[in-house]
C-alpha cells in the first residue's frame, strides 16, 4: 500500500493509472510525473520501491497543487467571483450555467432534477 498526497491509497494498478485517483492528477499529469521520476509506465504500484514512492511524493509536493489545496483554490476562485458582483458570480449564486449556455431547456447539471410545475395541464 502506497500513500501519496495525503489520504490517497492507489491499488495494484499501473502507476500512471493509480496516480489519477488523486484529485488534480489526470492522465496527462500522471504521465508527466512518471517521466520526471523515471518510472516505467508498465510497472504496478505494489512493486515500486520505497525510494520511488518517495520520489513521486516529492515531485507532487514540489510542483503540483492536489487534493484539499486544489479544492480550496477552486472554491476560493468561485467565492471571489460571487463577492465581486460580476455576471459570472451572479450565475454561480443562482446555480445556473456560467458560460452562456441555454437554460430554456437542458442545463440540468446545474439546475438539478426537473421540478414539476403546479397547475400545468396537458
Amino acid at each position: 500500500m502506497a500513500r501519496i498526497a495525503g489520504v490517497n491509497i492507489p491499488t495494484a494498478k499501473r502507476v500512471p493509472i493509480a496516480l489519477t485517483y488523486i484529485t488534480g492528477i489526470g492522465p496527462a499529469i500522471a504521465h508527466e510525473i512518471c517521466t520526471a521520476v523515471k518510472i516505467d509506465e508498465q510497472r504496478r504500484v505494489n512493486d515500486l520501491t520505497d525510494a520511488e514512492v518517495l520520489a513521486i511524493r516529492e515531485y507532487i509536493d514540489a510542483n503540483l497543487t492536489v487534493e484539499g489545496d486544489l479544492r480550496r483554490e477552486t472554491t476560493m476562485n468561485i467565492k471571489r467571483l460571487m463577492d465581486l458582483g460580476c455576471y459570472r458570480g451572479l450565475r454561480h449564486r443562482r446555480n445556473l450555467p456560467v458560460r452562456g449556455q441555454r437554460t430554456h431547456t437542458n442545463a440540468r447539471t446545474r439546475k438539478g432534477p426537473a421540478k414539476a410545475i403546479a397547475g400545468k395541464k396537458k
Binding site: 458582483g85 455576471y87 459570472r88 410545475i117 397547475g119
Partner: peptide, 22 residues
C-alpha cells in the same frame, strides 16, 4: 483591483428575473 481585465458590462446586469408565478 480584482475587476481589471473584465468588461464594464459584467457588472451591470441587463435582465430582471423575479421567478415564476407558479
Amino acid at each position: 483591483e480584482d475587476m481589471i481585465g473584465q468588461k464594464f458590462g459584467e457588472y451591470s446586469p441587463t435582465r430582471t428575473y423575479y421567478g415564476h408565478a407558479a
